[in-house]
Design a binder for these strands. Structure first.
Lengths: 158, 158
DNA sequence: CACTGCACTGGTCATATTGCCCAGTGATCG
DNA sequence: CGATCACTGGGCAATATGACCAGTGCAGTG
């Protein structure tokens, strides 16, 4: 479950140059190819590395507007709301949370005007009592994992 | 910038079976290998596909707790706060938003107790006036892109 | 209408990488 | 002490890759 320094270097290297291949990796890291292969297999079966899916940029797809919506749900309607939101393509992720809202979801839209349509579709469902939306202006720190990987690897160091 | 149906199928296929390779893809899609190669090149230079970095699961790294923090920033301190948050490995992403808060960030921590440490580190900075945190309980819709890709491909259909 | 540019096909080629195997070695642990 | 484990360094056949090519159908342009 915990990763060591070599695992960390493998992940970071892979994150920086995804097309790199096991052989080139082993060269860069100064270890045998079999080692890298074994580590990678382990990391994947551990679930540390979920996969290598393509990272698609919604903006490049024509959805440059991102927003976060906090939803309040009528008691007992959670499951229905989840199912409803799962059918909306513009809902990129959904979390249930503690705090003032009950759910938090990430939305994208083609424009600010289009965002209205998306929100209408999201909240146009019986179980949702109230929604409050925050539009993303800038994204100073895009979703990243490398610093955390490095820290996890450090923590593991003896 | 917009993608057509074949692009959509390529991305979806790639998302479902990332290790698949261009040759196997061309077989599945019933097109020539060169076509798939050309499409992929185009999608990548378009920026539609940003890359193929490994998807790392923070939970498997030992950070099973996720939270979203809404931050209120003292006027004019935005840049400093951004720089500060960028140095915290547990800050997975950061957005500046409209609405009640000024920024929204995604945090992870080793435990609920550890979350306190992370939040202290996040808000232990002069420019941050106030933080309100929502802990994620469930994640009914993990970050996904396929439905959006499919819709974008549909829209492009004649 | 003819022309041009474009994307796609279906094929070849040499090269590099992959997945798999092996024996040997050093360290750790019970 | 013996066993287990991870890593090394090597070798193997099979496969995919990137780079080409000529030919073809299509759409838009003049």
């Amino acid at each position: 479950m915990a990763i060591d320094h070599l695992d960390g270097r493998i992940i970071v290297l892979l994150a920086r140059e995804p097309r790199i291949g096991v052989l080139e990796m082993s060269r860069r890291l100064g270890v045998a190819r079999g080692t890298v292969q074994a580590r990678l297999d382990r990391l994947q079966s551990n679930g540390v590395i979920r996969g290598f899916g393509p990272e698609v940029d919604p903006a490049a797809l024509g959805y440059p507007v991102t927003a976060f919506a906090t939803l309040q749900i009528r008691q007992g309607q959670g499951a229905d709301v989840r199912a409803h939101l799962a059918t909306v393509p513009e809902v990129l992720e959904l979390h249930t949370t503690t705090g003032t809202g009950d759910m938090l979801c990430r939305l994208v839209a083609r424009s600010n005007a289009d965002l209205q349509r998306v929100i209408d579709r999201v909240v146009g469902f019986d179980g949702i009592v109230r929604a409050s939306t925050a539009i993303v202006m800038e994204n100073p720190v895009p979703l990243r994992i490398i610093p955390l990987v490095e820290q996890a690897a450090e923590d593991r160091e003896t």
